[in-house]
Simulated assay, not measured.
Amino acid sequence: MFEGYATNDHIHMLLMLPPEYSLANMIGFIKGKSVIRIFRNYLQVKINFTGRLFWARG
């Protein structure tokens, strides 16, 4: 199950995960896949994502 709400500067998400998936691994997966998609679709970066920063630490 996935539900979300987005504003200009942040996103709220509600996730329901099966017990065999850890929350930290799932968040890492979502952040990793979403930043690749953003770089490819909106920033026209096709290769070499190494060293690029997108998500804020925190």
Rank of each mutant, 00 (worst) to 15 (best):
M13T: 09
F2V: 06
L14P: 00
F49A: 02
E20F: 08
I30P: 01
F29C: 09
Y5S: 13
M1E: 14
M16Y: 15
N8A: 10
Y42L: 10
Y21N: 10
L14G: 05
Y42T: 06
F54H: 05
K46A: 06
I11A: 06
F49G: 01
V35P: 00
G32I: 02
H10C: 07
Y42H: 10
S22R: 09
G28K: 08
T7H: 03
P19R: 07
S34A: 12
N41D: 11
W55P: 00
A24F: 04
Y5M: 10
R40L: 07
Y5V: 08
G51A: 06
L43G: 01
I11K: 03
S22Q: 08
A56Q: 07
Y21V: 12
S22N: 13
F2P: 00
F49H: 06
I47F: 12
F39M: 03
R57W: 02
N48R: 14
Y42I: 02
Y21Q: 15
V45M: 08
F54W: 15
N48A: 14
I38D: 04
A24N: 13
L17E: 06
K33Q: 10
Y5P: 00
L23V: 14
K33L: 10
M26F: 10
Y5Q: 12
E20I: 11
I47N: 15
T7L: 11
I11T: 07
G58H: 03
V35A: 05
T50N: 15
V35N: 01
M26Q: 11
G32K: 04
M1D: 14
Y42R: 10
V45C: 03
G28H: 09
F29V: 07
M1F: 07
L53D: 14
Y5I: 03
K46C: 03
F39C: 02
A24P: 00
S34T: 12
R37Q: 11
H12I: 08
E3R: 08
N8I: 06
W55F: 08
R57C: 07
V35D: 00
